[in-house]
Each structure stands twice: as structure tokens, then as C-alpha cells.
């Protein structure tokens, strides 16, 4: 099994952290992992993305030109990465601010209203774990117990009190994601 995923959105949405939780979850499941950020002069409001690869065997290239799954969290990322989903692959996107919806017919497409849902719950901080839960619903590459272990490894100790809420958000993300194609 090898899963190559890119998560792309605005800086401040928790894109890099979501990738880190996923990568640590893979380690908890004895997988090989790489986590490669777009680093640079990114800031809150700028664009950010991270490529995560999970594999049962050693990973050669941490760089990919097409992805099994693309998670898109803003319009700029949609414009850039829709074309980079492998044929037969998966595109997941948060609907907030998306004006040009994806048009490809050779991939599976899923929507989630996570921004709106987090606003409704008054829990903006749970956005990325909600997206993670949605992703894991579609691509169950890591068992939930390993996701929780990976989440604990990723969060600093002072944030461990938030673990139950994050677990809820992961579950909730899985519930509210819907397939559109």
C-alpha cells in the first residue's frame, strides 16, 4: 500500500499540522512516511501545502507530480491541484469560498462544509481534524486508534485536554463528508 496525498489551503488553516498528524498516525501503524511542506514566506492568509506519503515499503521520492488524493481548502489550491489528481484518484474539498467547482470526470469528488460547520459549533480550531476525519472516511489508510496516538504525539502536552474534542471532530468530519461524483 502506498498513499500519496497533498493537502493545500491557506496558512493558518492547520494544513501542515493535519499532514503531521497523518504522518505520525502512519508511524503508529509501522508505516514508512514522508512529510514535505511548501515552506517559505507563507503566513496566515497566504497559501500553504504539504505532501504526505504513507507506505508499507521504503519511500524513494518524497516529491510527487500526481497524487492518489488531493485535499483542497481554498480556490487557489483547487486551481493548482485539481489537474494533479491521478486518474481514478480522489479530490476532497471544503466548499467555503469555492466559486469554480472541479470539472474532472475521471476522479471521485467529495465535498465537506467544514468551515461552515466549525463556525456553527464555534470551534474554528477543530477545522483541520474535521477535514482529517473526512479524508479518513474516504481513504481509511490508518486505523482510528493509530490516528489518536498520532494526534497525541503531534499536539504539545498543554493541548492534550483538547484530545476528546479533536476525536469528536474527526468522527464528525467522517459523518458530514458527501460524494458528489
Amino acid at each position: 500500500m502506498k498513499e500519496t496525498i497533498i493537502i493545500a489551503g491557506f496558512g493558518g488553516q492547520g494544513v501542515l499540522t493535519m499532514g503531521k498528524i497523518l504522518a505520525y498516525s502512519g508511524i503508529m501503524q509501522d508505516m514508512e512516511v514522508t512529510w514535505m511542506p511548501s515552506y517559505g514566506p507563507e503566513m496566515r492568509g497566504g497559501t500553504a501545502n504539504v505532501t504526505v506519503i504513507l507506505s508499507d515499503s521504503p519511500i524513494s521520492s518524497p516529491i510527487a507530480h500526481e497524487f492518489d488524493c488531493v485535499v483542497v481548502l481554498n480556490q487557489q489550491s483547487m486551481d493548482k491541484f485539481e489537474s494533479q489528481v491521478k486518474p481514478g484518484g480522489v479530490l476532497i474539498y471544503d466548499t467555503n469560498g469555492i466559486t469554480h467547482h472541479p470539472t474532472r470526470t475521471d476522479i471521485s469528488i467529495y465535498q465537506i462544509d467544514a468551515t461552515a460547520e466549525c463556525a456553527r459549533l464555534g470551534q474554528a480550531k477543530l477545522f483541520n481534524t474535521m477535514i482529517l476525519g473526512a479524508y479518513l472516511k474516504v481513504r481509511p489508510v490508518v486505523a482510528m486508534e493509530n490516528v489518536m496516538a498520532g494526534l497525541k504525539k503531534t499536539l504539545p502536552e498543554r493541548a492534550w485536554k483538547m484530545l476528546p474534542q479533536n476525536e469528536e471532530a474527526i468522527k464528525h468530519g467522517g459523518e458530514i463528508i458527501r460524494q458528489v461524483r
Partner: peptide, 9 residues
């Protein structure tokens, strides 16, 4: 920058 910024086991 690739090896420096990348996370792995």
C-alpha cells in the same frame, strides 16, 4: 532545503 524541511521517521 528539501532534506532540511522534510519530516521522516
Amino acid at each position: 532545503g528539501c532534506i532540511g524541511q522534510m519530516m521522516e521517521k
